[in-house]
Write a protein that binds this DNA or RNA. Structure first.
Length: 459
DNA sequence: GTAGGAAGGACCC
DNA sequence: TCCCAGGGTCCTTCCGAG
């Protein structure tokens, strides 16, 4: 395990997002994958930036550890009282009366491409480009290829890998087909992306006297009949758990967690925290390296420390995870809060080229805003330097804007203040308010959407 | 002392 | 050959204004 030094196996300390277990990654030679990723990354600007970020996180962990070491027995009993109070409030809010489904299409983009072009069947396939992969089919995943991996590394892992460029029109079409199925089970279903949705099936279960598992079975069949695509479904008393469950028997499977407190607590007791949506690489290592927490249940064991070290919203979240709680209500319609456009290009210091990129992005952004009849008040310019450092520069304006000219003139000012600079990416982001809403309620500042506008330059 | 803007990050698909 | 995206949401921290 960690018994070898970095000198022997340097790749072992290069943890990227693609080295975690993901659905369809069983039987992958993880060490080989990790080594290949490391070999192809080391020495690059990207790699250097990752190391810089990692050092920063390490420091953060050290600080937390030091803070932790200062906690006295007195502090602990104080924070234990706080934690216990929080947990009993959370426990009181537990609602086991709802049955939620989380539906997740299997390797969605790749499956759509295969459906449209059956000659791709049985071949390792990646949707994306040499610079970035959006989705890989299950055959490609056996080689360690996965979403968010750059294509050139994927090709190294799997030389026969077929690349198909993304075609969002196609995916939207098939997504809409699935969204015609969901309302039969829940008219207020929540779509969280083209391929994922939450469906509250409590009523349909009661009406028809069937279980959540039976509804899931039927829903998967219906989706297959309507689209020719498979999905996986999780069934649980809340959305957080349903999402975890949909991943368990992927692809083309389902998993039911009964509406029973003991079943939930048993499920949670051995569940790695990384499986929880919202706990990523950084949070996982903070919790593990500072408090020794690796399963959800341990959140409860370390509740006093959690309350002592983290903010209210973070500790509330961590403790609710430890109790296996999640949202059970259907939120009202959610307004978009921001809109953005960004492009990556070869790094350059050529200012006229940068302004030209900015012009293109302003145009795209303005068009996108007009399509949805949005305008925004806060414009953020996002820049990525040739060394992958990201900077944002924002202005809040008197007026809501959405014309290309307005966007461009304000963004240009922001850019001008940053030059000279060698960049890979630039962007902007104004807060937006839908005109319709503006007409009715001028003060709906809470409902603003922001607009990100990026340009990318590369050296 | 607080609300809100700005900047930076974590995370998700 | 090609060499690490683009579209979002939410949270935290810092800071100067009224």
């Amino acid at each position: 395990m960690a018994s070898t030094s970095d000198g022997d196996r340097p790749w072992q300390s290069y943890h990227t997002v693609f080295t975690n277990a993901k659905a369809g990654m069983d039987g992958v030679d993880k060490e080989k994958v990790q080594k290949t990723v490391y070999e192809m990354s080391k020495g690059s600007k990207y790699f250097e930036n990752e190391q810089r970020k990692e050092a920063f996180i390490k420091q953060k962990i050290e600080n937390l550890r030091a803070q932790c070491a200062q906690i006295t027995a007195n502090d602990i009993s104080y924070f234990q009282t706080i934690a216990d109070k929080k947990m009993s409030e959370l426990e009181a809010s537990r609602d086991l009366s709802k049955i939620w489904l989380h539906s997740d299409m299997d390797a969605f983009y790749a499956s759509v491409e295969t459906l449209v072009d059956p000659s791709l069947n049985g071949k390792p396939l990646a949707v994306g480009s040499m610079s970035m992969i959006c989705t890989a089919n299950y055959m490609a995943r056996k080689f360690g290829v996965r979403a968010a991996m750059p294509g050139f590394i994927a090709r190294k892992l799997c030389p026969e890998l077929i690349f198909v460029p993304p075609d969002f029109k196609k995916y939207t079409f098939y997504s809409e087909l699935t969204r015609k199925v969901f309302p039969k089970y829940d008219p207020h279903f929540i779509a969280t992306s083209l391929d994922e949705a939450y469906i509250n099936v409590t009523e349909i279960c009661n009406e028809r006297g069937i279980s959540g598992g039976e509804v899931a079975e039927e829903l998967r069949n219906t989706i297959y009949e309507e689209t020719g695509l498979t999905c996986s479904v999780g069934v649980a008393p809340n959305r957080l758990l349903a999402k975890v469950c949909s991943d368990i028997n992927k692809p083309n499977g389902q998993f039911v967690l009964p509406n029973d407190r003991r079943a939930v607590m048993t499920f949670i007791s051995s569940l790695p925290i990384r499986k929880i949506g919202g706990i990523g690489k950084v949070t996982e290592s903070m919790l593990r390296e500072v408090l020794g927490i690796s399963t959800c249940e341990e959140m409860v064991h370390k509740s006093a420390h959690i309350c002592a070290l983290f903010s209210h919203s973070s500790s509330d979240f961590f403790l609710s995870v430890g109790l296996g709680l999640g949202k059970t209500d259907t939120p009202q319609f959610k307004m978009r809060k921001s809109i953005s456009s960004e492009r990556t290009f070869s790094a350059t210091e050529d200012e006229s080229l940068l302004y030209q990129k900015l012009d293109e992005i302003a145009e795209t952004l303005s068009n996108d805003m007009h399509k949805e009849d949005l305008s925004g008040r806060t414009l953020t310019l996002k820049l990525k330097t040739a060394s992958f450092e990201v900077r944002t520069r924002a202005v809040s304006l008197q007026k809501y804007i959405n014309s290309k000219q307005d966007i461009l003139s304000h963004a240009s000012k922001l850019l001008k203040a940053e030059l000279p600079l060698s960049l890979r990416l630039m962007g902007r982001k104004p807060c937006l308010t839908p005109r319709q809403l503006l007409n009715h309620c001028l003060y709906l500042e809470q409902m603003v959407a922001s607009l990100v506008y990026m340009i990318l330059i590369y050296a």
